[in-house]
């Protein structure tokens, strides 16, 4: 009888130990270090549209400061804000819009003031060959043209509405997607005739879609802020990474990816 109940105790203990171990996973790195010798690791939460640039910048940063590790986690800005407010262990947050960063500053989760480091504007994406012969923003509202946009709830969707209001053209999209990547997918697969995505998305998609710039896009310029989070256990390294991103090398990388200057 005693032997039989042993495994149950072992499992119960494992379950309890496991759950408590989960709750305490955070960067266990001492924060009392001078800026002169950077070490340890930080976790950077960055908007999905920064995947390409931040991956390159983190690698370059690690090479420059030997012994440091920059962990990256990419997702939609709103998702990341939810994760951070729920206690996810992050040191730096880079948002695709100021609105989501404001949620964190309002909740006193940001150390100091966020710094704007890049901008992004919308561009029309069409499948290769441009089957619906789209040339201007107004063409997207033509009958028979299947346009896909982001839903108003997500940043690229609110940018779309701003452009519609500024230009006086109202679109009748066949789909309002919840992520910019879904819009891009519908265009690159040829399901849609056109989609509204960011300049950087089109650049990253390469030859799968063709981009058409339009002057009305200036009505909605998305600004990307970055900030250190109050929960950071390695503020020195977090600040150094932010300096790197906002510095010359970072700006060069962003320009190459199609981002604008803040």
């Amino acid at each position: 009888m005693k032997l039989r109940s042993l495994p149950s105790i072992a499992i119960a203990v494992a379950v309890i130990a496991g759950s408590s171990a989960c709750s305490s996973t955070g960067p266990a790195v001492p924060s009392t270090r001078s800026t002169a010798a950077l070490s340890g690791s930080i976790t950077v939460f960055a908007a999905a549209s920064l995947t390409g640039t931040f991956t390159v910048l983190a690698t370059k940063f690690e090479a420059k400061h030997r012994g440091t590790t920059v962990e990256l986690s990419f997702a939609g800005s709103a998702d990341l804000v939810t994760q951070i407010t729920n206690g996810a262990p992050a040191d730096v947050f880079a948002s695709a819009d100021t609105k989501n960063m404001t949620k964190l500053t309002d909740a006193n989760l940001v150390e100091g003031k966020p710094v704007n480091f890049a901008t992004n504007v919308l561009e029309i994406a069409v499948p290769p060959g441009n089957p619906a012969s789209i040339a201007t923003f107004a063409d997207l509202a033509k009958p028979g043209v299947r346009t896909v946009v982001c839903a108003p709830q997500v940043p690229c969707g609110s940018a779309t509405i701003a452009v519609e209001q500024a230009s006086g053209v109202s679109l009748a999209p066949v789909s309002e997607e919840s992520a910019v990547t879904d819009v891009l997918g519908k265009v690159s697969s040829g399901e849609a005739d056109a989609g509204l995505v960011y300049v950087t998305d089109i650049k990253a998609a390469g030859s799968k879609v063709t981009g058409i710039t339009f002057p009305e896009s200036s009505a909605a310029v998305n600004t990307y802020p970055i900030a250190t989070l109050t929960g950071s256990a390695n503020v020195a390294l977090a600040k150094a990474f932010i300096d790197y991103v906002t510095g010359a090398i970072g700006q060069e990388e962003f320009a190459a990816a199609g981002f604008g200057k803040p």
């Binding site: 939609g76 066949v174 309002e176």
Partner: peptide, 20 residues
């Protein structure tokens, strides 16, 4: 895709509402 009343089913609506 996702359009109110046409293709946006309840799970898609939940996923979208979560944003705002």
């Amino acid at each position: 895709g996702s359009l109110q009343g046409v293709t946006r089913t309840l799970p898609l609506e939940i996923y979208l509402q979560r944003e705002t």
